[in-house]
Design a protein around this nucleic acid. Structure first.
Lengths: 144, 144
DNA sequence: AGAGGTCTCCCACTTCTTCCCACCTGTCTA
DNA sequence: TAGACAGGTGGGAAGAAGTGGGAGACCTCT
């Protein structure tokens, strides 16, 4: 299970260390793609296949599902994890998520997300403020 | 069953002893995550899996369920209980719950809660006052 | 064809984590 | 009351993880 929050740095060569806790789970190849809320999604090959399948099930006739498909699929890169657990972030994805220097790497169960550190900080603040609203929802789905 | 209230210290290395009474119940791995009212929740792996499963069923398309997922999952850490019953509290969770030095560890049936000692003291006072008020009301209607 | 730039693989350094051991304190028992 | 034991706290050392840099190969552009 991929959970937790880590701060790593994207170096001059666009390399990014993945947290050592994730290494065993992810294997040696991952798929990086455009995420939602201006972050990147990183999937294991296995998870990616599931996602891709779901995407292709979307009705091709609708313009916006075509768009979403292209957004997710065309933006995806299969990349190897190097010997010490780093991946390469292509320029266009780096630009998309405004990555530079400090970067937040977060585990969200079945995928990893990569955020600009500041953006993540602000996003988190927003979410934490809504904690009581969230709590109600938690109650609704029977978590708490 | 996890019950009782204990005061322990979070040391310089972010280690926290769990009460020895809890040791048998919790096993050797636990999940620590954001709680409500600025405290942390500690779940056993078993309990946590139930929570995580429910969370992943939420639709990816909706912004608030994404936020919700990130809050709970990215905010969580799977951590090992060391040979003498201590766990590690990551920096961001330590910050979230304002933990430093003295810390209240509270058993709440199926999870453990970790509070800033002062915050817990004040919270408890509030609750106790409400208990008095409640008791009075109960008295008025002839229950006590 | 040569030069410049980029990508990749490998190595080294530094910092943080993790494991282990020792001490202290409070409690229970003899 | 004294000793022993268990639980809680703290610190040191070995190891791992994260970061950065260099050399060589490959590609491209002139």
């Amino acid at each position: 299970m991929l959970i937790g929050e880590y701060t790593h740095t994207l170096d001059a060569k666009k390399r990014l260390s993945l947290p050592s806790k994730f290494r065993k789970e992810i294997g040696k190849k991952v798929v990086v793609t455009h995420g939602l809320d201006s972050c990147l999604f990183v999937y294991t090959l296995k998870e990616w296949e599931k996602v891709a399948e779901k995407l292709t099930e979307l009705p091709l006739g609708q313009a916006d599902s075509r768009g979403f498909n292209r957004f997710m699929l065309a933006g995806a890169v299969e990349t190897e994890v190097d010997s010490i657990g780093r991946i390469l972030i292509p320029e266009y994805l780096k630009g998309f998520a405004h990555l530079k220097g400090k970067v937040a790497v977060i585990g969200v169960h079945d995928r990893i997300e990569i955020w600009n550190d500041k953006a993540w900080g602000e996003y988190k603040k927003r979410i934490e403020k809504q904690a009581d609203v969230l709590a109600e929802k938690l109650g609704e789905i029977g978590v708490l």
